[in-house]
Design a protein around this nucleic acid. Structure first.
Lengths: 217, 217
DNA sequence: TTCAAAATATGACATTTGTCATATTATTTT
DNA sequence: AAAATAATATGACAAATGTCATATTTTGAA
């Protein structure tokens, strides 16, 4: 890649900031940009015709969200991207993204790797939704978040994202009430503590067991 | 890409055939090849520690199955690839695949497009597993298969894949009994007819409605 | 601080789905 | 054709999860 080309990509790379209550894009919007999270976290949400919502993924800094299919074939965004607090993202126009991939095979391979990982991740998630009970799915979620975003503290691992029971419910495909009841059980068993703003995983190993176990506690 | 290079890729491209009862690869196997289906259909299956199974996707001719993450970072196959009847696949070694992507940006972009579409597909599937009832999920499955593999006949659209109720159950995350009961209901409503070897969708529009509808029939 | 809104909690009950047992019907194989 | 196997069917009951109502607590904003 020549200097010229590199400069032209950089010119098309802009940073955007979003806050609570805003949307980066919404389900059905035209897909004109390729995005990269640089600060904060972003929720990827899909909603059904009846208004029920499901959170597919929490993107962290470094994550791409391109909605590839949409960017390439001009179809609308299949879901909504919603900031969780203050967020910054880099945006690259469709054309610049495409040119970059064409002229930079290494970048293309990185994107392939990234998409491959995401694909595996979602397939694992689909398996869990298809086969596991609600409490197992919730345990799996807590384990993943603890490992991906957790900060070790005196009492356990504090999650790096603010998550209400409703958020968790949307991530594992249950109602808010069910999520609340299961979390109450987990709290009683000293597996977790705290709520939304300060959620702590106190017993990772037992949560992991529970995620793979038959009988519900 | 020079003639030399092209020839070297082709040299590494071999065709393999599989039949009923065999495996193309199994969950946990090392991932050494990139595959393309050329004939027949292939089931992608994941199983849980307790032995329950879930079918994530039926691959048709033209589909890639590379388990990208696995091919790139040397991790084991995250699932099993199982022929449904007689199947042919092209296999390309890891190294040849990688070289091909590096030297051929257009191919890399095609792979990115393909993976992007797959990602959307699985995310849609996850949404459905998270939010819809069993009968809606089954209706969605029948609609998709009718549109993807169906052949129009006098009585309706005949599916191009052999699918037992158990197969369907594994695809939508319910037990075999539940799939049987729901299919019995669909049959009574004249939405479908036939079993495994000869499954016919008789009323696509109503199945589509049902897939998006609140009350169960 | 005080008030309003959001989040968590809990009970009673309905619905959905799973489990297990057993029977019947198709399909393959011998 | 007969036997064996696989697939479909159905009932009775148990377990998981959803729904709706309402209360309490926590958090954030005026």
């Amino acid at each position: 890649m020549g200097e010229q080309e590199r400069r032209s990509f950089l010119e098309e790379l802009t940073e955007a900031h979003y806050g609570k209550g805003q949307y980066i894009f919404r389900q059905g919007d035209p897909a004109d940009y390729f995005h990269i999270v640089t600060r904060g976290s972003v929720k990827c949400v899909k909603s059904s015709p009846e208004g029920k919502e499901c959170t597919l993924k929490v993107l962290m800094p470094g994550d791409l969200f391109c909605c590839e299919a949409a960017v390439f074939d001009g179809s609308p965004h299949p879901g909504t991207a919603q900031p969780m607090g203050e967020v910054s993202v880099l945006r690259l126009s469709k054309k610049a993204y495409f040119d970059m991939l064409r002229s930079n095979p290494d970048a293309a391979i990185e994107v392939i790797k990234y998409l491959g990982n995401r694909l595996n991740e979602v397939q694992e998630q689909a398996k869990i939704l298809a086969l596991d009970r609600a409490d197992q799915r919730l345990a799996t979620l807590l384990v993943n978040l603890a490992e991906r975003t957790g900060v070790t503290e005196a009492q356990g691992i504090r999650l790096g994202v603010r998550l209400t029971r409703q958020d968790m419910a949307n991530m594992v495909g249950v109602t808010t009430e069910t999520a609340i009841r299961i979390m109450a059980r987990f709290k009683k068993l000293r597996l977790v503590s705290g709520t939304a703003a300060r959620l702590v995983v106190r017993d990772l190993p037992r949560l992991k067991e529970l995620a793979a176990m038959k009988p519900s506690l």
